[in-house]
Simulated scan of single mutants.
Amino acid sequence: MQLKVIPQPGLRYWLAMATASMCGANLGDIIPDVLNMKAAAGLSMLAMMFALLLVVERAVSGGFELFYWIAILIVRAAATNIADYAIDVARLTYTGTAVVLTLILIAAVALDRDREKSTAGSFLPSADGLYWFTMLMAGSLGTVIADGLGHAFGPVQTGVPISASMATLGVLAVMAARSRLGSAGIASYWIAVVAIRWWGTNVGDICAYFLSLPASTATTAAGLTVLLLVLRTRPARRNASASSLPRA
């Protein structure tokens, strides 16, 4: 389940992750709202898409960074559907779901501690099975936080912009803390992912409200493509090198 080439975290990476978060959130909403698919059918379809992506990526010699971002979109869409299923179908509370997802995320991150460099505490994603599971949980948690706060401040026309504003401040605070501490450790990486997923859910909903769901999905997908093509300041790192990193 490990990809050959993955991007290194940096400004380009986080901008792309934010854009992918909007696009993936809209893509996840398309499954029930446009395709009229049940949660189980939608998640099964996304799982097959992810498996097909891995097969194609293995068949292509050398590997390409594009596969990583397609995987991010698929996992992001799945996270949206998991969060929606927990609230709308299973009838769980936002708070209870967020607590459970937080505990699962903490456990997954604890298992992933050996991915940090012992010399600099720098976390470099190693896109294997545990990484994608953690990404799925982080995306689901960010979606639940966004939707919960979006409904907590009155009607969604008011609540979603308020939650989006809070998410913006949260993302800026996390990124500022990462920069000030001079460390990009595993915990701050996943906190940043959750914050960006929260932000992407709310901002994606706002874009879909003004543009329509399909138009917002297409627009954010185009934006992600342009961003990745234009901002090529940091080379992708071959995942095979991850095995050579010293263990903490």
Rank of each mutant, 00 (worst) to 15 (best):
M1G: 12
M1L: 13
L3Y: 09
P7D: 08
P9I: 02
L11W: 07
R12G: 10
W14N: 09
A16Y: 15
M17A: 12
S21L: 06
M22F: 09
C23G: 04
C23A: 11
G24Q: 02
G24D: 05
A25S: 03
A25D: 04
A25V: 01
P32H: 10
D33E: 14
M37C: 07
K38V: 06
A39T: 14
A41F: 02
G42R: 10
L43C: 07
S44D: 10
A47I: 06
M49D: 05
F50Y: 08
L53H: 08
V55T: 08
E57N: 15
R58Y: 13
R58K: 15
V60F: 12
G62D: 06
F64D: 01
L66S: 02
L66F: 10
L66E: 08
Y68M: 02
A71K: 01
A71H: 07
L73A: 08
I74S: 03
V75F: 09
A83W: 01
A83D: 00
D84I: 01
V89A: 11
L92A: 02
Y94W: 08
T95H: 05
A98W: 00
L101E: 00
T102R: 04
I104M: 03
L105T: 00
A108L: 13
V109P: 05
L111D: 05
D114C: 03
E116C: 04
K117H: 14
T119N: 06
A120G: 07
G121Y: 03
L124S: 06
S126M: 09
S126R: 08
A127Y: 09
A127F: 05
L130N: 07
L130E: 01
Y131V: 07
F133R: 02
L136D: 00
G139A: 01
S140F: 00
V144I: 13
I145P: 10
D147P: 05
D147L: 11
L149Y: 13
G150V: 05
H151M: 08
A152K: 11
G154P: 13
G159E: 10
I162D: 06
A164D: 02
M166F: 14
M166G: 14
L169F: 15
G170V: 05
V171G: 15
V171S: 09
V171F: 11
V171E: 04
A173Q: 04
A173V: 15
M175N: 05
M175E: 14
A177P: 01
R178L: 05
S179I: 13
G182L: 08
S183V: 14
S188V: 15
W190N: 02
W190Y: 10
I191T: 10
A192N: 03
V194S: 00
I196H: 06
I196S: 06
W199K: 11
G204Q: 03
G204M: 08
G204R: 11
L211H: 07
L211W: 14
S212P: 01
S212Q: 12
L213S: 08
P214D: 07
T219L: 15
T219Q: 10
T220H: 08
L224Q: 07
T225Q: 05
L228K: 06
L229R: 15
L229K: 14
T233C: 08
T233H: 12
R234C: 12
A236S: 09
R238Q: 12
N239W: 02
N239L: 03
A242Q: 11
A242H: 11
S243T: 11
S244T: 14
S244F: 09
L245Q: 01
L245P: 04
P246S: 11
A248H: 14
A248M: 10
A248R: 13
